[in-house]
């Protein structure tokens, strides 16, 4: 089975007057069911790698494959379609649309995809939010929620179209420890579902230790890629 996302020799250089190398020669394959931590010092290229894996950015060398299919020749529309269906993003800051309700924000990806009837979209958004403990806040606006709650709404939005791959860039970076724990549990729970993977950039070493796999970046290069056998074995037993 092809990896959900794979980077082959990916290098991204910003063509500035003094060219800046964001990531260099990255080979990384994320298979189904993985919960991957990307760690590294600040400025090591963690976010840049995540944008490349999520087709928000394109490599200057090498290529990114989604479900085994190369993406470098795709049009921006095709890449957008892949993001819509196959990838869910969570950023450090929630980036919710301030004018839409919590429910409205979660409904947006589904409405854009247009596969479900309006009633079904609302029902699904409500069920995701309830699952993430936000059942009482669905009709509030984002600015009426706490930081942790907003970040959970952002996760709910990333889950809306049921994508196999969730990419999270320091999702707990701006949260207190209790809220961080909640969000982490949610992401771990997603990775526990059949065929789903979560790749999360994190500064939190404890959190990284609790994940299946830890990819460490320094200066845009992968310096270590370790799997923790226990959790992986447990998962294999489950699936």
């Amino acid at each position: 089975m092809a990896p959900l996302v794979e980077a082959r020799g990916v290098t991204r250089v910003l063509p500035l007057t003094v060219p800046v190398t964001l990531v260099e020669g990255v080979d990384l394959a994320i298979g189904p069911g993985e919960l991957v931590a990307i760690t590294g010092p600040s400025g090591s290229g963690k976010s840049s790698l995540l944008y490349l894996l999520g087709l928000l950015d394109s490599p200057t060398e090498g290529e990114v494959l989604i479900d085994g299919a190369p993406t470098h020749a795709m049009s921006t529309d095709q890449r957008a379609a892949l993001r819509l269906e196959r990838i869910g993003f969570v950023f450090q800051f929630h980036f919710l649309l301030p004018e839409f309700s919590v429910l409205g924000n979660v409904a947006i990806p589904m409405r854009r995809l247009g596969r479900l009837a309006p009633g079904d979209i609302e029902a699904r958004a409500a069920s995701i939010l309830t699952r993430l403990g936000l059942g009482d806040h669905m009709h509030k606006r984002p600015d009426q929620l706490s930081g942790g709650q907003r970040q959970r709404v952002a996760v709910a939005r990333a889950l809306a179209n049921d994508p196999p791959l969730i990419l999270a860039d320091e999702p707990t970076g701006s949260l207190d420890s209790a809220a961080s724990e909640q969000v982490f549990e949610i992401l771990a729970g997603i990775a526990g579902q059949a065929g789903k993977s979560v790749v999360a950039v994190t500064h939190d070493i404890d959190m990284a230790e609790r994940m299946d796999r830890r990819v460490h970046l320094v200066d845009g290069r992968i310096v270590s890629d370790e799997r923790r056998s226990t959790r992986s074995e447990g998962k294999e037993a489950r699936t």
């Binding site: 928000l56 957008a80 649309l97 947006i108």
Partner: peptide, 16 residues
């Protein structure tokens, strides 16, 4: 600008 960026990251096309 932020909303535009998030919409595009969600998978909205440039045309949208």
């Amino acid at each position: 600008a932020r909303d535009i960026a998030i919409l595009k990251s969600i998978g909205f096309r440039e045309r949208d």
